[in-house]
Nucleic acid binder design. Structure first.
Lengths: 199, 199
DNA sequence: CAAATGACCAAATTGTTATTTTAGTCATTT
DNA sequence: AAATGACTAAAATAACAATTTGGTCATTTG
């Protein structure tokens, strides 16, 4: 029953954090949803922050797992990118947690929400960077600074999804993929048409 | 002396808004700096907001002027882009106003600062879009949706300057230009190496 | 007498104190 | 030995007082 209790707590907390954000989620509430005494939570997690981090870690693992599964496949690099992109766009609607956190950051400025989002972003960038580096080693990509590459890739994705939606109607998935290809892949793929001798 | 008074007020206000932001700038302070009675300000501007908008408009005009001068020149499109980019990077350090406003938005969340930045961004996007459209009409660019193009262009610029600096040391100007070329120009220029027949 | 002015006021902002909520503890129960 | 919920100190919120500020207008000035 003990392991089950831990799961109950995590589930309840995950639900509540995603629904109400970090600040508005109280330990009493989590205990109630988990049908557990409040003290019980503290036998598994030292404090609210640690409980939250556990859940955040799970989200990060889930994201990495999806990408890992895809990149293990035997496919050309650009195809993998597309497929991961696809899944990310699909997954997007599922990470209510990240959504809620960024809303909370905007509205209330909760430092914990800020930290969490930074960590998520940082993990994502590190992951992308490693992937690009290994693709570069395999010769699938033109040489370049993977730190800048991964940053551009992330920013472009972010621009086409989150940022665009702030001022326009959302772009449909095909347009996003097409634009992503046009601006990112062309600049990065090793098709090397000719090296800009026009300048 | 009347026209001179107006200028005095605008100069004082511009200085103060850029230095302290919208909220922290008081009408009394502007009057003092401008060496003018507070009531005098209200013979030229209906209220604080209108005075602020006048100054914002001037910044927008100045930006447009710089770009217009450049794009009137007889040069290939991509060169113009680079030169404007150069000037923008140079100018950037000079628009303390925009800088201060975005800081104010982050720190205090002043709605006026938010509005102002949105307007600045919107003007910029409209301008870029028009420029891209006309370059496209002249056949200097490959066909494409200029709304998305201008958005990407702006976001990429923003990413390489503002956003990058949030997590790393600033990129030097040459790296910015190079990256900008690699990811934006390659995807957009009508040099058409060959149309991605690899897929 | 028209333009400029600064004392003045209502409204908004800030500072302060009272009240409530909440994270975390621990003596008691299961 | 694990689970619990009443309890407490600290933090968040609400209520209220004091101050600041945008905007007005009767008076002054050139």
């Amino acid at each position: 029953m003990s392991l089950d209790r831990r799961k109950q707590i995590i589930d309840a907390a995950a639900k509540s954090f995603a629904l109400f954000g970090y600040k508005a989620t109280t330990m009493d509430q989590i205990a109630k949803i988990a049908q557990v005494g409040k003290g019980t939570i503290y036998t598994f997690f030292a404090n609210k922050e640690e409980l939250f981090n556990e859940i955040l870690q799970q989200v990060i693992f889930e994201m990495k797992h999806i990408a890992d599964r895809e990149s293990a496949e035997q496919r050309p690099f650009h195809e993998k990118v597309f497929r991961i992109l696809d899944q990310a766009l699909e997954f997007r609607s599922r990470h209510e947690l990240a959504m809620k956190l960024s809303q909370e950051l905007r509205d209330v400025g909760t430092p914990m929400a800020n930290e969490a989002l930074n960590r998520l972003e940082s993990e994502l960038l590190t992951y992308i960077e490693a992937q690009l580096q290994s693709a570069m080693d395999r010769g699938e990509l033109a040489q370049g600074d993977p730190r800048i590459m991964s940053f551009i890739m992330y920013q472009l994705y972010r621009s086409l999804t989150t940022e665009w939606n702030k001022i326009h109607d959302p772009l449909d998935k095909d347009t996003i993929k097409e634009t992503f290809y046009k601006y990112f892949m062309k600049g990065i793929l090793r098709v090397t048409p000719y090296e800009s001798k026009d300048e």
